[in-house]
């Protein structure tokens, strides 16, 4: 698993975002088992407690579950994953629109620009 963090934002938030991306994009398929906290910390080169915190939050969001065998698994709940996808799409688009508007694009120019490139 590949992680990239910067120092300017809380690390645990960044980890949450990147795991959400992995889940939504299917890199972490529904029902699949996540690496252990130690493994994640080692791969991401961050603190174990930070990883634990991020996973706890994801569990609150019902994106992952803990099975009795003490493994963490991606949820099978498709609705949840779709909802997460929408949330991520919303934030990304919002950011994008803000930037493009600051560059001087109005809505018509923006739509044309996008159509040419998709």
């Amino acid at each position: 698993m590949h992680f990239k963090f910067n120092n300017e934002k809380p690390i645990y938030l960044q980890m949450i975002e990147q795991l959400e991306l992995d889940i939504v994009s299917g890199r972490l398929p529904p029902g699949s088992q996540l690496p252990t906290i130690r493994e994640l910390a080692s791969q991401a080169k961050i603190n174990i407690n930070t990883v634990a915190r991020a996973l706890a939050e994801l569990e609150e969001l019902n994106l992952i579950t803990t099975k009795r065998t003490n493994g963490k698994f991606v949820t099978n709940n498709q609705k949840r994953i779709i909802k997460c996808r929408e949330k991520l799409a919303e934030t990304t688009t919002h950011e994008y629109l803000k930037t493009m508007q600051s560059l001087g694009f109005n809505t018509k120019e923006l739509l044309k620009y996008l159509k040419e490139r998709s």
């Binding site: 963090f5 300017e8 809380p10 690390i11 938030l13 080169k45 961050i46």
Partner: peptide
Amino acid sequence: KLLDEVIFLQNGKIILQDDADHLRAQTQ
């Protein structure tokens, strides 16, 4: 990235002690 907590020391005094992510959230 490894730190849970940070302690800032200057001139022999502790001027700050806080959770690392909390500080980041606070100051962006």
